Computed example of a mutant assay.
Amino acid sequence: MSDNAALFSSDAVVLADRIGDLVACMRSAEAELGALLVEIEQRGVMELFGYRSVARLLEHLADVPKQAGERLVRRARVLHPGRNLDGSPIPAFAPATGAAALAGRLSTPMIDVIAGVLAQVPPEHQASVEQNLRSFAADAGDKQVAALGARILAHLAPDGAEPDTTGPVAPTREVFLRRTRTRPAATRLRAPTRARTITSATAAAASGPAIVPLLPALPPRPPQSPPPPRSPPP
């Protein structure tokens, strides 16, 4: 390698290292800003600054769009502890991820991926899953971490989400009345059938008996099949 090539190569390494340092500082500053906004929110942004939300405060102080400020605050609420109305502490939902964010080691897409996976994990597994995702994130991108999270969720719930045990909702049975332009004194009644065909009849606007023969054309309630049996948890 020539001297010029070696010089350019060393310059590239220095520049890349500098980019990494600056990005880490930016990430750390954003995480610290989020923690500060959460603290202001808990103390009362109206009492302290006269604003109805910390997003509006940030918009006024830093010219940050309100939607961007709301996203920042929502993310910070997940990473940092809070307080109830009576002053009792609320532990952070993802404390290890919050510590890594303050150190500048996680991007905002990575934080959102980890928090999204943890929201679907049972509480007894959240700490170990968070540790696994955060460790994997040190050498992977957010898409790879999302894929790992999907595999973890599939392992914890091989049959997917719990089936909905609520009672079935009867399908809507309705008719549609439409006054036609050509016959203002009449009303067009349309009853969609199960085969997606349309049965129509013209009746006087106040004529109820003309509607009754069309009601059987409405689709019947479909039969409900029982949910499939679930396999025992691993």
Rank of each mutant, 00 (worst) to 15 (best):
Ala161Tyr: 07
Gly44Glu: 11
Glu59Ala: 11
Ala204Leu: 13
Ala217His: 12
Ile198Gln: 12
Ala101Ile: 09
Phe136Lys: 04
Glu41Phe: 06
Met110Thr: 06
Pro158Gln: 11
Ile40Glu: 08
Arg194Gln: 10
Arg188Thr: 08
Val14Lys: 14
Thr166Ala: 12
Val38Thr: 14
Leu79Gln: 05
Gly116Pro: 04
Ser135Cys: 00
Ala185Pro: 00
Arg77Ala: 04
Arg56His: 15
Thr165Asp: 15
Val175Asp: 06
Glu162Phe: 05
Ser231Pro: 00
Ser135Gly: 03
Ile211Pro: 03
Ala137Tyr: 06
Arg105Lys: 06
Arg151Trp: 06
Pro226Asp: 11
Ser107Lys: 03
Met26Leu: 14
Arg56Met: 15
Leu106Glu: 01
Val45Asn: 07
Ala55Gly: 12
Leu58Tyr: 09
Pro171Asn: 04
Ala201Ser: 10
Arg196Phe: 10
Ile40Trp: 10
Arg27Val: 04
Ile152Phe: 03
Leu37Val: 09
Leu133Cys: 05
Asp11Gln: 12
Leu79Ile: 10
Ala24Asp: 08
Asp159Glu: 14
Ser231Ile: 05
Ala100Gly: 01
Asp17Gly: 13
Ser10Tyr: 01
Ile114Trp: 02
Glu174His: 08
Leu214Gly: 04
Gly69Ser: 07
Ser200Arg: 12
Gly141Cys: 04
Arg75Ser: 12
Gln120Phe: 03
Ala138Val: 13
Gly149Met: 07
Leu156Glu: 09
His155Gly: 09
Ser207Arg: 06
Leu79Arg: 02
Ile152His: 02
Val129Thr: 13
Pro223Glu: 10
Ser231Gly: 08
Gln120Gly: 08
Leu79Val: 09
Thr165Gln: 13
Glu30Ser: 12
Leu189Pro: 05
Ala119Tyr: 00
Ser53Asp: 07
Gly20Tyr: 00
Leu218Ser: 03
Val121Trp: 07
Met46Gly: 07
Leu85Gln: 14
Gly141Phe: 08
Gln67Leu: 15
Gly34Arg: 01
Ala150Val: 04
Thr180Gly: 02
Ser2Tyr: 02
Asp139Glu: 15
Leu133Lys: 01
Arg18Phe: 03
Arg77Leu: 10
Thr172Trp: 01
Asp63Glu: 11
Val121His: 06
Asp164Arg: 09
Ala16His: 05
Asp11Lys: 00
Leu72Tyr: 00
Ala206Asn: 11
Pro89Gln: 10
Ala92Asn: 07
Leu36Asp: 15
Asn4Asp: 11
Arg190Tyr: 10
Ala12Arg: 13
Ile152Leu: 11
Val117Ser: 08
Pro65Phe: 02
Val113Gln: 00
Leu57Lys: 07
Gly208Glu: 15
Arg77Asp: 04
Arg43Ile: 06
Val175Met: 11
Leu61Gln: 14
Leu215Thr: 08
